[in-house]
């Protein structure tokens, strides 16, 4: 018998009482000011939030970010922003991204309760860019902030192969005596720009 057949038969040997699958609706938390809540949580987990002033262009805002100072290699995949000196397609392998200082990428939506931003690998040549860059900037439409995770999964579909993730703050570790260190293996800083 194959291991698969053996495992399944070991499980099926025990007939368990059926137990219903619960519905997922509920009185979930909602915030009067989602943007304020989101900003507070992101700041609390070591990230920064910038809101674009209508009089300012997105490029101006991005260029003025502290992480852009002295950045030698900047990758930007935003469709209508001409910034950055390298396109992701210029990098033959994900390993060749090791020298990237700043990556500016779009985020689909943001979650107020936990400061997370949803991003995917759609149209991205290397998904490693989210982690290998020294600094990460995510640009999210201001109107796309939702209250909590249940709303997030209401809008997400996983019917095709792909990769997507919630990012909340920069990479971090507390593995040495519970002292928080920002910039573990991934980005040393995360800036969320609300457009």
């Amino acid at each position: 018998m194959s291991s698969k057949a053996e495992i399944l038969s070991r499980i099926r040997r025990h007939t368990l009482e059926p137990s219903p699958l619960p519905a997922l609706d509920g009185e979930w938390i909602a915030f009067a000011d989602r943007q304020a809540q989101f900003t507070q949580v992101v700041t609390g987990v070591g990230g920064q939030v910038r809101v674009r002033d209508p009089r300012q262009s997105l490029s101006e805002l991005l260029l003025a970010l502290p992480c852009m100072e002295n950045a030698a290699q900047v990758v930007c995949t935003l469709p209508d922003v001409r910034l950055g000196n390298a396109s992701l397609d210029d990098f033959p392998t994900p390993q060749s991204l090791a020298a990237v200082d700043v990556a500016i990428l779009p985020g689909e939506f943001a979650v107020a309760e936990n400061g997370a931003v949803w991003v995917t690998d759609r149209g991205l040549r290397h998904r490693a860019i989210y982690f290998i860059t020294q600094h990460l900037v995510l640009v999210v439409p201001r109107g796309e902030i939702i209250d909590q995770m249940h709303q997030a999964y209401d809008r997400l579909r996983f019917d095709r192969p792909g990769y997507g993730l919630f990012i909340s703050g920069p990479s971090k570790t507390a593995d040495i005596e519970q002292s928080l260190v920002i910039g573990a293996h991934g980005p040393r800083s995360l800036t969320v720009v609300l457009e």
Partner: peptide, 20 residues
């Protein structure tokens, strides 16, 4: 995340569907 380390969510929650 709240139960594990008192964080609202971990920094990365990655969803893998198929190989890259």
């Amino acid at each position: 995340g709240r139960s594990a380390t008192g964080q609202p969510i971990t920094a990365y929650s990655s969803h893998f569907h198929g190989p890259m």
